[in-house]
Amino acid sequence: MINLILGNPKDVHVIHLTKGLKEANSTVVHLNTRLLPIQLKASWESETEKSYLVLADGYKLNIESIHSIFLRRISDPYIPALGNPRKEQIALDDSTTTLRVILKSSPAFWVNPWDISYRIHEEKPLQLSNAKKLGIKVPATLTTNDPEQVIKFAESKERVIFKPVCGGAWTQFITDFHLEPKRLSLALKMSPVTFQEYIPGTNIRTYLIDESVYSAEVKSDSVDFRQDKTSQLIPVNLPEHIRQQSLDIAKNFGLLWTAIDWRLDPTGEYVFLEANSNPLFLYFERQTGFPVTQELVKLLTKPR
């Protein structure tokens, strides 16, 4: 049984999952997509309907032989400098498309599927819309590059936070400094931003692996607990209706593996913030003792 992990083999999460899969008697192959096209060879042909990759160490991986694919990270192929931005973009597009065609031609079981994983990650405002349609409470949110809308939104809420639309930076409280007209206008000319009402209360993180659900309270005073290296995770049992909402979110989003962030407000109501399609999990597992790696291995090695 071959299990393919997409990601850098030096990534600590990749190393940890590899160890778990090997202990389950699986063959693990790593694919660092950054190495295409210089160190990786990729081929697809219509007559035989076969495709394969030749990895940096010379190992020839027949795509049809892969049992499951775990998507840790897909990096853009590295294109050498060609002295022409247009040619470099064409080379990048060709390499990315070839990789996509080959991997998507595989009958392997994905955790999580390429298209779904990146769509969910990149279109976070739509997560809120979909969750709301499921009857799940979400915070008031505005994604815009219109300064007038930002001012209006900020004035209508007691406290407001802001963060990137897609991700990549920390969540912060909005202040008068950020709302200064010239500064705000300049910032929003660079890109739209997501603004959100601040929900006082407690952070709850919920991991789902197939039908298994594990949750913990994140004890932190930081507005973005990812910045807090002293944060603590305390295992908690979700109310049954929130556990079911977690399963509903994962199913609606097409995710078999996800981490959902909730805010438990002072009234005891859970507010959905976002679902991560490619979450870090080692810290959570070590702090709580929940068998996340074991569950992932079970999911990836399940007979199909």
Results as ranks from 00 to 15, higher is better:
G58D: 11
L142Y: 04
V28N: 00
Q287C: 11
M190K: 14
D261I: 07
K163M: 06
I209G: 05
D248W: 10
L255G: 09
I116M: 03
V213L: 05
E45W: 00
Q196P: 01
F177V: 13
D76K: 10
Q227Y: 09
I260T: 06
P200G: 10
P200L: 11
R73C: 15
D57L: 11
E148F: 13
E49Q: 14
S117G: 14
N276F: 01
Y207H: 00
K19H: 04
A250C: 15
W262T: 03
F284T: 00
E47F: 15
S212A: 06
P125I: 02
G168D: 06
W44V: 13
G83C: 05
P107F: 11
T206P: 08
I5K: 05
W170M: 13
V111S: 04
E47R: 11
I249A: 03
A187M: 13
L256M: 01
D93R: 12
G7S: 09
L186S: 14
T258K: 03
L296N: 02
S222F: 10
L273E: 02
I74L: 14
N8Q: 00
Q172D: 03
F70M: 04
Q287A: 08
D176F: 09
Y118Q: 07
G268S: 12
I5C: 04
K124P: 00
A169R: 11
T96K: 08
D224L: 06
V292G: 02
A24I: 00
L247K: 10
V150K: 02
I151C: 12
M1T: 02
G20C: 01
H178W: 10
V193N: 08
L99W: 10
T230G: 14
P80S: 12
H30P: 09
S26P: 02
L296W: 01
D146V: 13
L256I: 12
H241M: 10
P9W: 09
V165M: 05
K104T: 15
K152T: 13
G167E: 02
Q232L: 06
I234Y: 05
A187S: 15
L255I: 14
S246G: 10
K157W: 05
T144Y: 10
D94I: 14
I63W: 01
R159D: 00
E240P: 08
W110R: 02
R243S: 15
L273F: 08
V213P: 02
V236Y: 07
D94Y: 14
K132H: 12
T96P: 08
Q89C: 12
H16W: 00
I90S: 14
K302P: 05
R34K: 07
K41T: 15
R159I: 07
T48F: 10
K19G: 04
P125V: 08
Q89Y: 10
G289I: 11
A275N: 07
F281E: 06
D94T: 13
E295I: 04
E274W: 07
D93C: 14
I136K: 00
S46Q: 14
L300D: 05
Q172C: 00
W170G: 06
G268D: 04
D93Y: 14
V101K: 09
S65F: 03
S277E: 01
I102P: 09
E148S: 15
L92R: 08
H16D: 00
Q227M: 13
R73N: 15
S105D: 03
S191K: 09
F173K: 04
P147D: 11
R226T: 08
V271G: 04
I120V: 11
I79K: 09
G167V: 11
L82S: 07
R205S: 13
T301P: 06
P235G: 04
E269G: 07
E148H: 12
K157G: 05
